[in-house]
Amino acid sequence: MDEPTVNEEPGKQPRFDAEPDEAELPAGFDVLYDEHFAFVWRSLKRLGVPVEALDDAVQDVFIVALRRRSDFRGQSSERTWLFGIAHNVAHEQRRKLRRAAEHEALDEALSAPNPSPLEALTTAEALRFVRSFLETLDPDRRAVFVMTELEQMPAPEVARALGVNLNTVYSRHRAARLEFLRRVERHFRRNP
């Protein structure tokens, strides 16, 4: 295989192997895509882009990145820069595709009876809960929570990605984190 594997973070296994019939992208763009596709995909999903709109949203992020390449001054990492773009794209997508059905599913997931004991907690259950929780957050807190708690990015990077003050990031994170703990407690209250 002639395509390099991707290893975004030290100690992590490459997310992808080379594909047997990879389509070709322009120079540089190819590398950017390979390195950050998974991150962009995850971020958009966590920022509330519905699965059926994910393909378009991921494309939009990379196309915007390509067109606005001159905006990138190397003051932050590529990931940070791409997250800022993804945040805007997700905002647009949500505006277009907001659906009442998702809110119904949300309430159901957050109040599901008989949660698994901690040891038996499955990824699917955790994922459902976290996704549902994210839906309850306003977009600004949601973006901060996704970056800090799920992507584990440092606060200054989050501030740069979102173009906000560092204290704003801390404050949004604190509020979102508190709310998450409250939801978790309520969810598991009847499971001694």
Partner: peptide, 15 residues
Amino acid sequence: WAERMLELARDADEP
């Protein structure tokens, strides 16, 4: 619980 949930969620959502 919260930490465990976040830990599990972090590793999900991969394309």
